[in-house]
Design a protein around this nucleic acid. Structure first.
Lengths: 243, 243
DNA sequence: GGAATAGTGTCTGTTAGACACTATCTA
DNA sequence: TAGATAGTGTCTAACAGACACTATTCC
């Protein structure tokens, strides 16, 4: 329940005279892990830090949550600033709240995962194009095993995000969120392979996702020579798999 | 990677002169949903609000996160205050960050789930015993379909928690966290039944959880008359099921 | 025709719900 | 012995990985 609670007059009077106490407060940011499939590889958007601390390290984009803005709205705003995309799949990941995460001040970060289709992306991400970069995720993960590249606790945040994606790919629609409206079976499989970082069999992906797909009636010629064209599919939004 | 990064001297100097700007900041609380099995029923700990707003409504216990305290530590502190338990299973649930959640001021709440064994609980929960109450969860959920009982957005938080527990019970160890060190198969099944709010078959629970259990060698006489005693088990902490 | 991928159908091992049946205890 | 729950074993349907085999395209 809970639709429009009737606020008793007594309570209304209390509220009129209430002023928030001046606690010593942490700052709150919304950080956003933007994933996209680019050139058949899963990529994540990172920005290079221009100043201290962690100067020249790469960081997950984020920004402070406004005092009258929901945390989710802050994440959407951040996404818009970085990718110029208004609507995208957005999911809260986890809240990272250790003191000393940021040596400057106490910051609590609510991390979000955004999945965007490369086709939706408009040009120029942000102002300084040179400071923003798409990293191929699996290459990055490998590199992180031996090198420190990410600022703050952002490596931990990235690993948390990957675990989430891997865990959810089989029973949710996240794979489709990374594809354009129309796609082939092979493209869909590539999303699975990139997220799970394994080789899969096209045939099993077909079977598992078929009920959620609609054949558009069109075929697409393949990049490869001597090859039968693929059926073009659309995601059936009305289908919900149990969970 | 990321163990002990060497902070360059240049960066250290920057930090020495950095002072956090005075942004207008939301307050952050750690709210904690404490679950326990009491009298064969899953219960949640709620406190009755003594003041406005939502006077006399029931609320999930919570408190402000200290400026030098991790959010998780704040949750542990809150748990200790309410139940007098030091160590318990604690898991971050979700962060609720809409403005107007609390009519007094902007509050962002990081919600945690705590699972405690009734046997570990010491007496007296908090100061005013009369203000703290254990609610049987499934009865409460039913009541919430027709009545507003919970303060703020706490009904939504509760539903999120229940979904999480139901989703994780089959592939994690949360059921065991609600039981004392030693327990019978029937007690374990009762945890499953309470969380899922369904009737299950003992025999299937036995099969599914067997690899994670250790038979203590002891038997326990049953409450019911004319009945064969149950084997007493312990949770095998070393066993990790894939996920 | 041959190379190459698209797509179908099937085999198999695993898993989860259901339940028949046996085991063991106490009044 | 009867009543009751403990616990074993098995049937079955759903599912997922593997792969044999067919289909279709272009050079």
């Amino acid at each position: 329940m809970r639709k429009d609670r009737i606020v008793p007059q007594e309570e209304q009077e209390f509220l009129n005279h209430y002023s928030p106490k001046d606690y010593d407060r942490p700052s709150v940011t919304a950080d956003i892990l933007v994933f996209s499939m680019i050139d058949k590889k899963l990529h994540i958007l990172l920005i290079k830090r221009k100043g201290h601390p962690y100067k020249d390290y790469w960081a997950i984009p984020g920004g402070f949550v406004g005092i009258n803005e929901s945390v989710e709205d802050a994440a959407y705003r951040e996404l818009k600033e970085e990718t110029n995309i208004d609507n995208a799949y957005l999911e809260q990941l986890y809240t990272f709240g250790n003191p000393n995460r940021d040596p400057r001040m106490r910051v609590i970060s609510v991390a979000y995962i955004a999945l965007v289709s490369a086709s939706k992306m408009k040009e120029s991400a942000g102002d300084d194009a040179s400071e923003v970069c798409w990293f191929p995720v699996n290459d990055l993960l490998e590199q992180l095993e031996t090198e420190d590249i990410l600022a703050f606790d952002h490596e931990e945040i990235l690993h948390t995000a990957i675990s989430r994606l891997r865990g959810k790919i089989h029973y949710t629609d996240i794979a489709f969120q990374l594809l354009p409206k129309e796609f082939t079976m092979r493209e869909l499989m590539e999303v699975y392979e990139e997220i799970l970082n394994t080789k899969l069999r096209l045939t099993n992906i077909i079977r598992d996702t078929a009920p959620r797909l609609i054949f558009t009636g069109e075929y697409r010629k393949n990049d490869v020579v001597h090859c039968r064209p693929s059926k073009v599919y659309t995601f059936n939004k009305d289908y919900f798999k149990k969970y």
